[in-house]
Design a protein around this nucleic acid. Sequence first.
DNA 1: ACATTAAGTGATT
DNA 2: AATCACTTAATGT
Length: 210
Amino acid sequence: MIEALKRYYGYLFEDELLEEIEKIGVYREVPEGFTLIDIGDYIKNMPLILSGAVKVLREDDKGDDLILYFIEQGDTCAMTITCCMGDTKSEIRAVAETDTKLIMIPVQKMQEWMHKYKSWQSFVLQSYHERMKELLEAIDTIAFLKMDERLLKYLRDKAMVNRDDLIHTTHQEIAHDLHTSRVVVSRLLKKLETDNKIKLQRNNIKIVDL
DNA sequence: ACATTAAGTGATT
DNA sequence: AATCACTTAATGT
């Protein structure tokens, strides 16, 4: 665990902090599809992703999901940052996109470290900033109803977090993540295929050029 | 061979 | 862009 920690975070944190993380953090491995945080949960741990990826979803009043963004190694959940200031409930759901390895850090420690370590503080602030930017991007594409652009971004992100340009999913699942209908996804994908941007097979989408 | 699930398509709102 | 209705294709039992 310490090797992975050093590899992905070593350049960010000083040795003293890395030791504390190793001592206090709880190492976990979760399988694909595992719900790390659900809406309404109280957040008592802050995740540091070592490998794999997690997708962050918002849910509407009818229980329909909508993808906000992916987080991967070197990222943390921005929601925990706001939530640990007070004991508020999570507004989002976090589901493992792939098998994921992570370290859980209690929120008390994370507050303590904010004062103690400069590198920790800038890490937290910077990832918060990154998430904020992603959120604004998400709002842009949703607000202007550009389904084709949302789909493109989704495919790009998905290929990136999986480090594989062969995406294993169904049109149905994409439609669910993007909160649209399967038919629309099928049509847009078909168009992308005729433009030679992707190759379609059952349960598979091969990215050719995005 | 049959049922089930994924994907493609035209027409309508 | 969403929904409906229907077809075709792939896969499991």
